[in-house]
Nucleic acid binder design. Structure first.
Lengths: 234, 234
DNA sequence: CTTCCCAAGATTGTCGACAATTTATGGATA
DNA sequence: TATCCATAAATTGTCGACAATCTTGGGAAG
């Protein structure tokens, strides 16, 4: 029984493994967005029966990475501009809430640990400028810790098992290695300070702005991406 | 292929039917909260195979009505005071968002239709004072229409397929037939007026307050309920 | 008497095959 | 040539059986 990096679901069964593997492949684009999923084909590829694969597909559906239609089949979610906006509207509301709750419920040592982590990220970031992995992981880790700091299990599940993989999918496939790095760190710092001061209202506001900025940034990349694809299609 | 009342998923397959049936029984308490679910037993009861039942269980899990543990099994969710608070915190954030979006995106005829419905409810409500079904259905219908008015598909799915059944479960099992009826109507009226004036900020605020009041009301009932159960156990 | 361990029973996870439905193919008709 | 319908192929939905895992009960050791 091993463990996955982001969602803390322990991997015990075969379908757990297939779920985690497929999730990674979808998020990273190895299984391309919008493509149809053939059950027999993928079952053979992962070396499991269709029942096991279908179990995994069900879970992928509940975190919005695939869409099913009865008697028709399964499709990988399509990354559209509209969906990006929708998801970020929801994310803003939920993480805003998480941040407000964290200001009340986060333990002092959790806050300190997060500040420390932030400084550490800042140092390594300056060295490894432009290396996407650290930025991605660092940013996600920051958000993840605050979400957990809300101490609202339902909210935690909704975000980390529900929305975050889809958000990662956009970020990864848009190649988010932007110049927002340093700016994002400042915003992170302001947020954690507000949380430390138990100023929930401010923390919520700052988080919502931070996410809006992130959304704008992704949207720019997205349009760039779309323009490129248009050119290719001609 | 028939249709379900609230979630607009068409019922085509056998597992769809089992899903809808079980959902109703769980929400209404026929399958009691917190109880363990035996796959062989329920499969026999619904006259389907275990594979079909498991498909339904998966979907019940994604709308938070049951919880699964690998190699152990399935439990109906337990209605605790803590969870009630958590769910309502999330609901407040999401429906607040829905309301704000609805102020921008709801079509004029949708608004008119909802105002009309509200008046109609007010009339029939005065006659059938205390009859729970109409209140329940009326309230849910109001919220549902605003959610749909947000035009954010992700949000719509999150609320109507995700949270609402769990909220209904609390309301139904706490026997929500309170004296909040007329007050709720006034609040509904204020909300729809704000939406009509495209005042998203106000609409969001009013909705959040409305939901807070609803939460306080349920919580009272819940404590009453808990006190009764304690007395019984003695 | 309590604790630990092992075996029996029951439950869940996984598999391959069959049934029902959808999609693709090809020929007939206007 | 385009459209429609019927048939064939492929895909999804469902089933019953077997394998793996967890739970329960009883007996032995301390």
């Amino acid at each position: 029984m091993t463990q996955d990096a982001f969602s803390e679901t322990p991997i015990t069964t075969a379908s757990d493994q297939v779920f985690v593997d497929m999730r990674r492949e979808i998020v990273e684009g190895s299984i391309v967005q919008g493509s149809k999923i053939s059950e027999p084909e993928l079952a053979k590829r992962y070396g499991v029966s269709r029942a096991t694969l279908r179990e995994a597909l069900n879970r992928l559906e509940s975190c919005y990475l695939v869409e099913r239609k009865a008697n028709v089949g399964c499709r990988v979610v399509a990354l559209t501009a509209e969906r990006l906006i929708e998801v970020y509207q929801v994310r803003s509301a939920l993480e805003g809430l998480a941040c407000r709750l964290a200001a009340d419920n986060m333990a002092p040592d959790e806050v300190q640990s997060l500040k420390q982590l932030l400084n550490q990220h800042l140092k390594t970031q300056r060295v490894k400028e432009g290396e996407s992995y650290y930025q991605e992981a660092g940013d996600l880790d920051f958000h993840y810790r605050i979400i957990k700091g809300s101490k609202n299990d339902h909210l935690i599940h909704l975000l980390s098992n529900g929305l975050y993989q889809l958000i990662r999918m956009y970020r990864v496939q848009m190649g988010m290695v932007g110049p927002r790095v340093s700016k994002a760190f400042d915003e992170h710092l302001a947020i954690i300070n507000a949380i430390e001061n138990h100023d929930g209202e401010l923390a919520e506001l700052l988080m919502k702005r931070h996410i809006s900025a992130s959304q704008a940034n992704i949207q720019t990349k997205f349009n760039l991406h779309a323009a490129q694809n248009e050119r290719v299609e001609q």
